[in-house]
């Protein structure tokens, strides 16, 4: 029985999905804060939101890089 592989798949799924979702959610949240009218906010909020989206995109691209055999061979 391949229990180890099962655990590996479950773990990889968890890590990958949580990374993407957390980064994207942070991005959404920061964009929301940056978009608030009538509220003072630090000027780094919007750039930070973009950094979150960017990291999220990078995480996805890294995942693709790992998976497509053309690159990882």
């Amino acid at each position: 029985m391949k229990w180890l592989e099962l655990v590996q798949v479950a773990g990889a799924t968890l890590v990958a999905a949580v990374t993407v979702v957390v980064l994207y959610s942070l991005g959404v949240r920061l964009t929301a804060i940056a978009g608030d009218v009538n509220e003072r906010k630090p000027s780094w909020v919007r750039p930070l939101a973009y950094v979150c989206f960017g990291l999220c995109g990078l995480a996805v691209l890294f995942g693709l890089y790992l998976i497509i055999p053309y690159f990882s061979k």
Partner: peptide, 10 residues
């Protein structure tokens, strides 16, 4: 997406 890609890769 993570589950499919992880499982097909591992």
């Amino acid at each position: 997406a993570s589950a499919i890609l992880a499982s097909s890769h591992l």
